[in-house]
């Protein structure tokens, strides 16, 4: 039976949400092609993650075990996955465009000499029984539908583009160990140190609500005051447009957009952001956009569900106050 392979990630011994989303993307495609769906989990204490993956749609788990995989290391991950792919010969490989996925995706494709579709938001089986993927390009202005001309088809899928499948605790699946037989010489780069630059509050990528600020805020102060009050009231993370980052109002880690973070919150409230395609490329997966902008012709009103045309300095305090009363 042909199979679709999902590259799994583990978060605190549980299956990462992004991997559960990949299963949701891959399952219907596997079913329409008569294929099974497997998850590769790299050297973790995997019993719970493996079970977790099975209840969320996986038919088979490959536990890739090697001492060199104790923590994430690009070269070791690449060598292991390449070996697994060559051995099981899947029809497709799905990877989530997380920090790890973005790091290994393209290199893995080149290593096994196949094509990869980057930053997909949707995959499906077409009339020729080929897997095709839709991906935004040209700063999110266009969507390209792409197929692979080689095997396996590989897709790097944007996180939060699909809800995980309903949990089915009655499902059963097979769990097998895979030994990648790694040699220390595969590791070329040394990670000297990892530094966390602490950003207060919720991580943008994980946030279900985001408040974003742009050039229209006219300075850095609102990020610590009005915008922060609003975000705290809503339980939201704070993001920014490239314009605000380039001027130096907030660090790069706040940047949402083509050249920053890709987010997909349930609610994205944008203040003083015009909605240039550069920015929209990073938040097109938002379920609801609310915009406050003094320019009635701002592009953002084409994407927003609710809009206020006005001066944020007057709108925000009243909005925050009212929200405090409602929540």
């Amino acid at each position: 039976m042909s199979e679709i392979l999902v590259v799994g990630e583990v978060n605190n011994e549980n299956l990462a949400d992004s991997t559960a989303e990949l299963l949701a993307h891959g399952k219907p495609v596997a079913e329409s092609l008569g294929a099974s769906i497997s998850v590769a989990i790299l050297d973790q204490n995997t019993t719970s993650a493996a079970q977790d993956a099975i209840t969320k749609g996986a038919d088979k788990i490959y536990n890739i075990k090697d001492p060199l995989l104790a923590s994430y290391q690009t070269d070791a991950y690449l060598a292991s996955l390449a070996k697994l792919i060559q051995e099981i010969n899947p029809i497709a490989v799905l990877i989530s465009k997380t920090e790890i996925g973005a790091d290994i995706g393209a290199r893995l494709a080149f290593r096994v000499d196949t094509g990869i579709v980057q930053d997909c938001i949707e995959i499906s089986a077409n009339a020729d029984n080929k897997i095709q993927a839709n991906r935004p390009c040209f700063g999110g202005n266009c969507i390209a539908t792409v197929v692979c001309e080689s095997n396996p088809m590989m897709a790097l899928i944007r996180p939060k583009t699909k809800e995980p499948l309903e949990l089915d605790s009655a499902r059963s699946g097979e769990i097998v160990d895979f030994n990648p037989g790694l040699d220390e010489s595969v590791i070329k780069n040394q990670v000297v140190e990892k530094v966390e630059e602490v950003q207060e509050g919720i991580r943008l990528e994980d946030a279900t609500r985001i408040v974003g600020g742009g050039r229209g805020l006219n300075g850095p102060e609102p990020f610590d005051n009005e915008l922060k009050d609003l975000a705290d009231t809503m339980g939201a993370a704070i993001g920014a447009s490239r314009a605000a980052v380039d001027i130096g109002w907030v660090p790069y880690s706040y940047q949402i957009g083509l050249t920053g973070k890709k987010v997909a919150p349930d609610l994205y409230l944008m203040v003083g952001i015009s909605g240039a395609s550069q920015h929209m490329a990073g938040c097109s997966g938002s379920k609801n956009i609310v915009a406050i902008n003094k320019d009635p012709d701002a592009n953002i009103f084409k994407d927003a569900r609710f809009g206020v045309v006005g001066d944020w300095e007057k709108v925000l305090p009243a909005l925050t106050q009212q929200l405090k009363e409602l929540m």
């Binding site: 494709a109 990869i116 579709v117 969507i143 390209a144 197929v147 692979c148 609710f306 809009g307």
Partner: peptide, 20 residues
């Protein structure tokens, strides 16, 4: 080629912003 673009299009936006 390893990949092939079979379609390329500008997605339709439904512009239904409710101005408060």
């Amino acid at each position: 080629p390893r990949i092939k673009i079979v379609d390329l299009f500008i997605p339709q936006k439904q512009s239904q912003c409710e101005i408060i």
